[in-house]
Write a protein that binds this DNA or RNA. Structure first.
Length: 554
DNA sequence: ACTGGATGTTACC
DNA sequence: TGGTAACCCTCCAG
């Protein structure tokens, strides 16, 4: 850094305090703004250094520090945005934080989550192509339209745990063992937790060196998990032994700068073809043969060049159909037999980045997407008209760079394929506490079926997964994991005392200097890694098993 | 009970 | 088209 000259004489400091305006009525204050724009200008610039002409002549500057209260959102005086107790007051100068439309705030938004979400109904579609006709005649009857009553896991009465040292990024239930939950975090750690025996967990710490973005169980072996990471590798880990190998490593030469560092985001497995599909941050799809552990063919550009492909999903019913989504504002439908750049069957347009796109879990006929424009979109039939979504549901799940992106997930048990779960970004004031519920939404009507929360969980819960067989919800909120079950099925005695949240060792505050790597909440998801390239073919993961309760959280 | 810092995406030039 | 400032409900440590 260039050496700086010290001023010989300290400049005159003028402090504009807020006292004047507080003494005057608010009406006066507003008037003052209107008739005297320069003063507003001054208010806008807190700590502004202003050289007066007089001072300039003498070679001294006058520092004007404005202590007048300004809105932290728009920097204008006369109002303030932020929490008043547990209620957040929006800045009236900005468009609605929920639906993004100007003219009102979240409080008065017609889509505000109170009893139901805003639904924008489908444009009337009366064009029926032959495929759609056949679908309606032959396949639709297979999907029950009779909705069984929803069972909502709405109480943390089983287990809560914290062993991740970074925010949770993904969750996966074991395909056969009902009590095993796998979790990945921003640091790349993989947790295996038996939530029936609350204290039993294993954390694999050296499989990946940064964000574990997605994971899937091997369809051939339920003791094996595949994971895609921003370190550019796909790992294949044996859950019993912790032995892990890399299927591919897209950064064999290590860190050569952000322009070349490839990160893996979307991942899924096509069990029919025994192919692991992954996609990277530059728009490319890679196919890896799960038997030979080798890449088949070349990488295919499936999204806009240079854009992240954050989600991949193979159709559960029709294995040749692939769904992808990413930062180019599109979800795209592909035929696996004809995969090449620009050959998508369909492009589902969104107004902003698409966080996730999933086929419905049973029939695979519907598509549910989550976009950064605060809308869930439902396409009712992949055989029908996909030019526009059948419905848009306004829901608060905005991007915040410090959070794992929200993804609406289907309930895999719901035979009517109408229930979805997604965490909510904006809070509500519940008895004086600002809480961020987990929303259960009927995607046919847009109605909010349930909002699930616990007064002890004040953090946002962007990661949620419903159990494939049991009435269980697993959620990841910041660094913690929670297991929810239906209140109605358990009496209060079984309710978990949230003070007994289990926090395992290795996460406890250390005294003295902490290394940057250890504690900074560095969300350096993409560019600023400091790791050397690793190209490990097979390695034994370090097992950190700490079977004791370390601390009771308030 | 504060405050600072980490840093992805977008809008704008 | 590339570079960069701005950015609304975080979260945790100090």
């Amino acid at each position: 850094m260039a050496p700086q000259k010290r001023r010989t004489a300290f400049p005159k400091v003028l402090i504009e305090s807020d006292t004047d305006s507080e003494q005057s009525s608010s009406e006066e204050e507003e008037e003052e703004q209107e008739v005297d724009p320069p003063s507003e200008e001054e208010n806008e610039n807190k700590d502004k250094i202003e050289d007066s002409n007089d001072a300039k002549k003498k070679g001294k500057a006058t520092i004007t520090i404005s202590l007048k209260k300004v809105c932290k959102v728009c920097k204008k005086a006369g109002h303030e945005a932020g929490f008043k107790g547990a209620t957040y007051i929006d800045c009236p100068m900005k468009p609605c934080f929920l639906c993004k439309m100007p003219g009102h705030t979240t409080m008065t938004c017609p889509h505000r989550v109170t009893t139901e979400h805003g639904v924008i109904p489908a444009p009337h579609k009366n064009i029926q192509n032959p495929v759609e006709f056949i679908f309606e005649r032959q396949l639709r009857p297979g999907i029950t339209s009779i909705k069984p009553p929803y069972v909502i896991p709405d109480q943390v009465n089983c287990a809560a745990i914290r062993y991740h040292s970074r925010r949770v990024t993904c969750l996966e239930f074991h395909p056969t063992n009902n009590h095993i939950l796998l979790s990945g975090d921003k640091k790349g750690q993989l947790g295996v937790w038996d939530f029936a025996k609350v204290h039993e967990k294993t954390v694999y710490g050296n499989i990946h060196s940064c964000i574990l973005n997605n994971m899937r169980f091997s369809p051939a072996n339920d003791g094996t998990i595949y994971a895609a990471s921003s370190d550019g590798t796909i790992s294949c880990t044996d859950l019993e032994t912790g032995i892990s190998s890399s299927l591919i490593n897209l950064n064999p030469d290590g860190w050569q700068g952000p322009a070349s560092w490839r990160m893996l985001y979307g991942m899924d497995i096509n069990s029919e073809k025994s192919v692991v599909l992954v996609a990277d941050n530059f728009g490319f799809l890679y196919l890896v043969d799960a038997r030979s552990n080798s890449q088949t063919g070349k990488a295919i550009m499936i999204h806009k060049k240079g854009s992240k492909v954050v989600g991949l999903h193979c159709n559960p019913f029709q294995p040749d159909l692939l769904l992808s989504c990413g930062n180019d504002h599109f979800a795209r439908l592909w035929d696996m037999r004809r995969l090449e750049a620009g050959s998508s069957l369909c492009n589902l347009e969104h107004r902003r980045v698409v966080n996730s796109a999933y086929f419905s879990p049973l029939s695979g006929c519907k598509i549910l997407t989550t976009s950064q424009d605060n809308r869930l979109r439902i396409w009712d039939s992949i055989f029908g008209n996909l030019d526009s979504p059948s419905r848009e549901i306004v829901h608060s799940h905005d991007f915040n760079r410090h959070l794992t992106p929200f993804r609406a997930e289907w309930d895999p048990k719901d035979p009517s394929e109408s229930l979805a779960v997604i965490g909510r970004y904006i809070s509500e004031n519940y008895n004086g506490t600002a809480l961020h519920p987990i929303d259960f939404i009927d995607i046919n009507t847009g109605q909010l079926v349930a909002e699930v929360m616990d007064p002890n969980i004040t953090t946002i819960t962007p990661v949620n997964k419903l159990h494939p067989r049991d009435d269980v919800l697993a959620s990841g909120s910041s660094r913690s994991l929670f297991i929810w079950r239906p209140k109605e099925k358990y009496d209060d005695a079984e309710r978990l005392d949230m003070r007994k949240i289990v926090v395992f060792g290795g996460d406890e505050k250390k005294h003295g200097k902490k290394s940057r790597d250890e504690y900074d909440d560095d969300d350096s998801d993409d560019e600023k890694f400091n790791f050397k390239g690793k190209n490990v073919k097979a390695k034994k993961s370090k097992k950190e098993t700490t079977p004791y309760c370390r601390k009771a959280k308030r």
